[in-house]
Amino acid sequence: MSSDSPQEIGRRIAACRRARRYTQTALAAASHVSYAMVRAIERGARRPSDEVLEAIADALEVDVARLRADHAGMERRVHRALPALSEAIAGYDLALGPPTRSPEELTEGITTAEAWRLAAQYGRIAAVIPGLLTDAIRYVHAAPGAEHQDAARMLASVARTADAVAFKHGAHDLSARLIDLMRWAADRADDPLVRATASYVRAETFFAARAHEVGLIAVEQAIDAAPPPDGRTQAAARGALHMRAAVLAGRAQNAAAADSHLAHARQLGEQVGREGCYLGTAFGPESVRIHEVSVAVSLGPEHADRALRAAATWAPGIDLPAERCSGFYIELARAQDWAGRPAEAFNSLRMARTAAPQHTREHPWTREVARNLRRFHRSDAESLTHFAHWVGAV
């Protein structure tokens, strides 16, 4: 049974509906749920089933966990998708027939899935990504010569979105295979910016293996191979690699290299001028500032004050991707816990959940901080216990 009362669920649905300027009648039509049921749910008179809740969330274009914190449907959907993803890429180098979608339909589906990735809506991605990935692979093999490079760029994008689902849910072997596919596609796109993006994503394999020194070397080689930062997109691609290198250097306890890469990223962020999404990666002054916190946390507990100073009197803007905002608050919570600020740490975890519930729930540091807070700090014990149950920390 959910720890959220029907009244709480109803209030959240009503708030999301009003934010989208839907009437109850419009929500009922969009979700294929009866008007009487929508009214009863919003009043708290009915508890929605998983199927009804997911239909309403899809109609409102929000993560189901925003409506009910302990919803488990997303995890089931993701774990059902992982074997299908593995099957889809088993013979990616083989021509197995034409795609079922037109190039226009494939582009639309991949663009939508990328937006869900940036919003950390992994359950929605999982429902469509095996089919999209299969069609993107087939399109690379079937595309006429004039379309081949665009087809390869599309495959690199959808492989990255699939990887986000695998990596965030601990399927690191599958994640590594998807990254290999992304790099294969980048080579066929013959586009240095796509190669730079693939190198940025490849850093996940080094994080997963804790091979931080090797990862730093690989990313530094990618920086050397990246195109000159002559334009905004080129500067953003290089700046994102410097952010990755800074965090890898921090985890390798190489503070000098971390600071050097942060300085380069900061300079490129100023050159780009405004925060944006470039080739599927958020970059700009705000992303660099978030990585200042990430680097300090990566260096360890003795650098907690540095992380707190970087986050002082500042918070991520609402236009940043949800996953990046959530990551900022999770890392900040870790620093606050180290600094002996349990109330602030718990508040940061709740901010992370508000920004991106699925990302927060799957992040190992969320569980680490929640478990530590529950063990050593007794303030707000009931709320903390509910949160710890939600993330699987107890």
Rank of each mutant, 00 (worst) to 15 (best):
L320P: 01
A312L: 06
G269N: 13
Y22K: 01
V297W: 01
I125H: 07
A381C: 06
D163C: 15
D58G: 06
Y200N: 14
W365K: 10
R177D: 15
T233V: 14
A127W: 00
F167Q: 13
A208Y: 04
A218N: 10
A186D: 07
A265T: 09
A245Q: 09
V247A: 08
T313S: 11
A81M: 08
N372S: 14
E213Y: 08
T385R: 09
P364M: 02
L279P: 00
K168Y: 05
R77N: 10
R43P: 09
A333G: 10
W184N: 01
G317I: 01
A343S: 07
A249Q: 05
R274G: 02
L320A: 12
V369Y: 00
A370L: 02
A256G: 11
A185G: 13
H71Q: 11
W390K: 02
I223R: 07
P285D: 09
R361E: 07
H359D: 01
V128Y: 03
N254Y: 06
A36C: 07
G284E: 08
P301S: 03
R367N: 06
R46S: 12
P192I: 11
A343K: 04
E108H: 13
L85I: 12
R350D: 04
L133G: 07
A59P: 04
P48L: 05
A343D: 01
V272L: 12
Q271A: 13
H71N: 08
T107S: 14
D63K: 05
H303R: 14
F346E: 00
H303A: 03
H261R: 10
V140F: 05
S31Q: 07
R138I: 09
C277L: 13
V78K: 04
A256I: 14
I179H: 03
R183H: 14
L262C: 08
A164E: 11
S49M: 05
E302G: 09
N347R: 14
A208V: 03
E8M: 12
A185I: 11
D93I: 00
S260I: 02
M351D: 12
G340D: 05
E8Q: 15
R350K: 10
G392Y: 01
P285S: 10
D187C: 00
D259P: 04
T354V: 08
A143W: 02
W314K: 11
S5E: 04
V288M: 03
S199L: 02
V64P: 00
A95M: 06
